[in-house]
Design a protein around this nucleic acid. Structure first.
Lengths: 169, 169
DNA sequence: GCGGGGTCGATGCACCTGCATCAAGCGCGT
DNA sequence: ACGCGCTTGATGCAGGTGCATCGACCCCGC
């Protein structure tokens, strides 16, 4: 899972107690606060989403991303999927093995590249993705929509993209 | 580790292609974008920080948080640490076992509560935390300071706190 | 046509994590 | 004093993850 991280600057042992951001906060303290909350918020949100899926007896979160990516992009090669969903190569490899065993995807040899595979969504895979959506959407809704106004969402997305740019589809 | 997540709304299969946020983006698409980037940015940042520590031959990231929390709060009980660093109970328990074996913390029985433990930082622990700081700080700096202006950092921290409020110290 | 460097995907191994559960201890009401 | 429900922290087990590495293959220059 993911973990929550708290940094303290040796020079500023109580940096994090700055709950309200008044203008005397030093830049370093604010950086740490932002870092801390970035990881903290992400971890929390993830935890909730995972719990939601699990309670509904659905597959893990990562499967959704892969299924969704396949639905959007059509059959793809693992190395492309990897970039899109941001999963490590060895990890994606095993994930796909499991998903194939579960009948959600179909793997065939790539005709143009003897090393490659081609991953295709099966009907069961598409159905599974659809089945996962309500639970997943619930978690997303709870994390974002009930807490941020429309403008804030745009700002948040914009700033996060600067922090770690989304790779091209 | 942590994973990057992409949501697609069945009604909006190409939601994520909205790279620039123009005003025709539907609210749902923006929510997904924000969610996606929240997890993506967090995961990326984490990955970089972990790699930085590992390359320097230092202990894992979580250790830093625990060491830092102990330094800030003084000797604490696990159940309190748990809330502060946001680690699951069973996980913290094992983490502390390893850290004690490494000589970074000291565990003693809590006199007021027969069930409890008291975790204290050793000198080696404080030294280790200090040794980890430069590598960790480098990652934080690279993720936040080189990418966001001072105002943006404040905004980001504020919005993230709404998404998943930081628990009290 | 051949060799070398690079890419693709799989896998052995050690470790970490999540879940369920447990034993021990607290504290309250009676 | 006793019992009951709750909290604290540990742990067995199954499964996921990270790392290093491997074999197969592509492509380019010669």
């Amino acid at each position: 899972m993911v973990n929550r991280c708290i940094g303290i600057d040796p020079e500023l042992p109580h940096a994090r107690q700055t709950r309200t951001l008044h203008r005397m906060s030093t830049p370093a303290a604010i950086t740490l606060l932002a870092w801390d909350r970035l990881l903290g918020a992400g971890a929390r949100a993830l935890r909730i989403a995972r719990a939601e899926l699990r309670r509904a007896g659905l597959p893990p979160l990562e499967w959704y991303d892969i299924l969704a990516a396949l639905e959007r992009r059509g059959a793809s090669r693992p190395r492309d999927l990897q970039r899109v969903v941001g999963i490590e190569q060895y990890n994606l490899s095993r994930l796909l093995t499991r998903m194939e065993a579960a009948g959600l995807v179909d793997m065939t040899h790539c005709p143009e590249d003897g090393r490659g595979q081609i991953v295709a969504l099966t009907e069961a895979g598409a159905a599974q993705r659809a089945a996962m959506w309500p639970a997943y959407a619930g978690a997303i809704h709870g994390a974002i929509e009930t807490r941020l106004g429309p403008d804030e969402r745009i700002q948040l997305a914009g700033m996060l993209d600067k922090v770690a740019p989304t790779p091209a589809q």
